[in-house]
Design a protein around this nucleic acid. Structure first.
Lengths: 135, 135
DNA sequence: TCAGACCCTGGAGCGACTACGGATATAAGC
DNA sequence: GCTTATATCCGTAGTCGCTCCAGGGTCTGA
């Protein structure tokens, strides 16, 4: 018996928890290789597709952009990724995340200040609208 | 002398620090009212446009979506905003920001753990790639 | 009058998908 | 073998919030 049959896109989608449309999208943008087809034109995936798709999914879950994923996969630049390069990409990504956190926290502080000044009445002046409107 | 002449889009853009293209975009999506035009078809803005545009810009800087801005402006739903409704929108927005911060921090922790395990050599195994690849 | 700065429109592009519609392929049941 | 149900195909368009472009027309100062 064959425990490793070719998978249809639906099965691959279930196993990897990646949306069917997304799988086709990844193929279209060249981040997932084009699989062989059945006589009728359906895609038939092998193990290496599953592996790559899982790699992509995990990278995306960690917030890497598809361009970064491309690089991590060694699809851009000169082929083989060194560990140094991977670490570098990851550190840049971390720096970016920290910037975003900082920005969001600043926002949160400002907004919290505004709401704390606002009684939330049904009428009258609103300090929040005021702050947005004031010259 | 007239200290309040109609402004061209370029001048409005400078004064409000909103890109010209963005101003036209806001008009197109109906968040900024269509201004009168000169004989030759150039937009001529008055004070109320400046005020509204500043309102929009500040709201965007606070991270509100254009839909939220629309609502804060009283463009959707039944007209007049109550202070209660404004506060509610703002609190939802704060909650959203907090969620995002939480998610980003979780990411940061995972990524930091990974890089700390990675020596960043020029060759050999890479714990980061491993983590992305492992079954 | 005329150069040069400004403004006009419509459309495309970004990132990372997601959704849709109408046609074909395959699987399951009888 | 036949019918039905489900799966898959493709191409296109929509999402958000802009930004940029080409190929024109308008306005202003010297």
């Amino acid at each position: 018996m064959n425990t490793n049959p070719r998978l249809t896109i639906g099965t691959l989608s279930e196993r990897t928890e990646v949306n069917i449309e997304t799988i086709r999208y990844y193929e279209r943008i060249g981040i997932l290789p084009t699989p062989p087809r059945s006589a009728g034109g359906h895609r038939l995936y092998a193990k290496e597709h599953t592996q790559r798709l899982v790699f992509i999914r995990r990278s995306r879950q960690l917030g890497f952009s598809l361009d970064q994923v491309r690089e991590l996969l060694g699809l851009s630049s000169g082929r083989r990724m060194t560990c140094a390069r991977v670490k570098n990409i990851t550190e840049q990504h971390i720096a970016d995340i920290r910037r975003r956190v900082k920005d969001l926290k600043r926002l949160e502080r400002v907004l919290s200040d505004l709401t704390s000044q606002c009684r939330g009445d049904e009428m009258g002046e609103c300090p929040i609208l005021d702050a947005l409107t004031r010259p």
